[in-house]
């Protein structure tokens, strides 16, 4: 066995993979969140659709996205390996177990929380990622006045069996910037218009909050990071940013769109 495989086959090595992939996924959440905040813009999804195109066609980001997919797979797979090993380490459990006396609920239920998140990710990616790449998406045509960027007209171009070409150009005649893009925004709005879908999202985000409450700071510890002065900052960040603010903003999106269709917002 090479030194590399040896290292990663130890219990600590396996956990290192969990930590690195987990922290990378947490970092991705920040980027993902910033992008998705475009959903709150009242521009008929122009910014969102442009962002979607950028994310799927800019080479460095494309490469990173493959790292991301790999991370999800590794994170889930290694979680499974580790769980199997840990279960083997105690085949006969306790008749009475008082875990809450010595550890947080999150820390004891990372597997369940992670499984919920994995199911969520599958549904989430089927709904949007798969549809965006392989589905028969409608297109949207946006014309924006160069002299007045606020003046945007939106024309839906329903799918007619022939995918259009994504294009961005300036029409010199009308003096308008024209964008023709896949209308992922519409897919999102349709999805979030369904109550069960909103509930799924909100529950998943709560699970994510709990998952990250333990996971974020635990990831740092697994790397060996632990310092009297600086570790409290990690814990603070893990609690407020990763387990409260980020999940809350993500959860706000479906709620916002759901309520918006009834004109409640």
């Amino acid at each position: 066995m090479s030194s590399f495989t040896k290292t990663f086959s130890t219990t600590m090595g396996k956990k290192l993979i969990m930590s690195l992939t987990g922290l990378f996924l947490a970092l991705f959440l920040v980027v993902h969140l910033i992008g998705n905040l475009q959903l709150f813009k009242d521009d008929a999804g122009k910014a969102f659709n442009e962002y979607s195109y950028f994310m799927t066609h800019f080479l460095p980001i494309k490469i990173i996205s493959y790292v991301l997919y790999l991370s999800i797979v590794l994170h889930a797979l290694y979680a499974l390996f580790i769980t199997i090993r840990n279960n083997k380490a105690r085949p006969v459990g306790y008749a009475q177990y008082n875990g809450s006396a010595n550890s947080s609920w999150s820390s004891r239920n990372m597997g369940i929380l992670g499984t919920i998140l994995l199911i969520f990710i599958v549904i989430h990616m089927k709904s949007f990622w798969w549809e965006y790449h392989n589905g028969d998406l409608p297109y949207a045509r946006y014309e924006m006045s160069l002299s007045n960027p606020a003046d945007v007209t939106f024309t839906p171009l329903p799918f007619d069996g022939n995918p259009l070409v994504h294009s961005e150009y300036v029409d010199s005649q009308s003096g308008k910037e024209v964008v023709v893009a896949k209308d992922l925004y519409k897919i999102v709005v349709d999805a979030f218009g369904r109550l069960w879908y909103v509930i799924l999202y909100v529950l998943s985000m709560i699970a994510m909050g709990f998952h990250l409450y333990h996971g974020f700071q635990s990831g740092f510890q697994t790397l060996g990071f632990d310092h009297n002065k600086y570790f409290p900052a990690i814990k603070f960040l893990g609690l407020w940013v990763f387990s409260i603010i980020i999940p809350a903003l993500f959860a706000a999106m479906p709620i916002y769109i759901y309520l918006k269709q009834f004109g409640l917002i």
């Binding site: 600590m12 956990k15 090993r85 790397l223 632990d226």
Partner: peptide, 30 residues
């Protein structure tokens, strides 16, 4: 089994050994 940083050990340790030790060992190991 492997450590998942639940922290139960340091709460139950009769000699109050801290989890800092675990992180120190990780640094040395890596």
């Amino acid at each position: 089994g492997g450590c998942t940083n639940t922290g139960a050990c340091e709460i139950e340790c009769p000699k109050e050994i801290s989890m800092t030790n675990i992180n120190r060992m990780r640094r040395d190991f890596f």
